[in-house]
């Protein structure tokens, strides 16, 4: 039994970050991962439970000077319904768990849970997003930005320090030529943990694909970018041959394992299927 000794619910970001500086704090946002993980004995509460849901500044989507900013407390439902969220992010939100979980689960929580199968992470990799990490240093709040592609170090592990709070996700607002698609799979249409997920995005103009970014979920210890696939596609016209080569490259990028949800064979197979499917979507866009 992990005992919670103290419960705090700060109103401001600085109070929240200040509370983290003393250590021994578990952060509660939507609770949709935290609660079942504690119940299952896979993680335990630190002595202080900090509910950050009362911090207003941490919620919502804004655009400013070509940058989109999504507060860490923004729920998956809010993203799904927002015109300011790029389509690829809304697609992932639409396939996320169930209505009830989407209403509670937050973007920051999904990122910090650092599951290789985290559905919201994949499109953020495609958008080349960065995360903002806030900490309390010498009487003031300090914020650092890190690209999300470098954020994850293993299943459930990130570069975020215990005294840091992930306060927002930022990315360049996609331009008019940007096209992005997300696809995940599992045996049933709802409430499904991804067997694999693939996201592809880039500027599709005059029949050629530029600034291509490809991301894979549930095929390695962290969500990952498909560098070989990106290199293969960069600047190319999406002919059947290129798409086929990209699908093979995607299989080289991914390093899936066998587990009870799928074999590595099936994951590798799906990577090619989805890569091809999404590139065909891009062509038809």
């Amino acid at each position: 039994m992990s005992e919670i000794e103290k419960y705090i619910a700060p109103d401001t970001v600085s109070d929240a970050v200040k509370a983290l500086s003393s250590g021994g704090v578990t952060i509660l946002a939507g609770g949709t991962d935290l609660t079942p993980q504690v119940d299952a004995g896979r993680r335990s509460h630190a002595p202080t439970l900090m509910n950050i849901r009362r911090v207003d500044d941490l919620s919502g989507i804004t655009q400013n000077k070509g940058e989109t900013r999504i507060g860490c407390l923004t729920t998956v439902s809010e993203i799904k319904q927002s015109d300011l969220a790029p389509a690829i992010l809304r697609q992932a939100a639409d396939h996320f768990a169930s209505e009830q979980i989407r209403n509670a689960a937050t973007l920051g929580g999904n990122i910090c849970n650092a599951s290789p199968a985290g559905d919201m992470i994949n499109p953020l990799l495609v958008l080349d997003a960065s995360v903002e990490l806030a900490s309390w240093k010498e009487g003031a709040m300090e914020v650092r930005r890190e690209p999300i592609s470098r954020f994850f170090t293993g299943p459930g592990k990130t570069i975020k320090h215990d005294n840091e709070l992930l306060i927002a996700v930022v990315f360049d607002t996609p331009g008019p030529d940007f096209v992005g698609y997300f696809r995940k799979s599992g045996p049933r249409p709802a409430l499904e943990i991804s067997t694999v997920s693939v996201g592809i995005g880039g500027d599709y103009k005059d029949g050629a694909f530029h600034n291509v970014r490809v991301a894979f979920g549930a095929v390695g210890p962290t969500p990952l970018r498909g560098k070989a696939t990106e290199a293969m596609l960069e600047g190319q016209a999406l002919t059947a041959e290129v798409i086929d080569k990209a699908a093979r490259a995607a299989q080289d990028d991914a390093t899936p394992i066998d587990d009870i949800r799928a074999t590595s064979w099936y994951r590798t197979h799906l990577i090619a299927v989805f890569t091809e499917e999404l590139l065909n979507n891009v062509c038809q866009n």
Binding site: S98, G186, P187, R188, P189, A190, L191, I193, I260, R261
Partner: peptide, 26 residues
Amino acid sequence: SEEMIFEEGRLKNPSFRDYKLPTAPD
């Protein structure tokens, strides 16, 4: 979709996450 997965007599998927009951859209 439903299947209890046993390895050496032990159930490996004792949860609704990994034991796939049909949901309404199915």
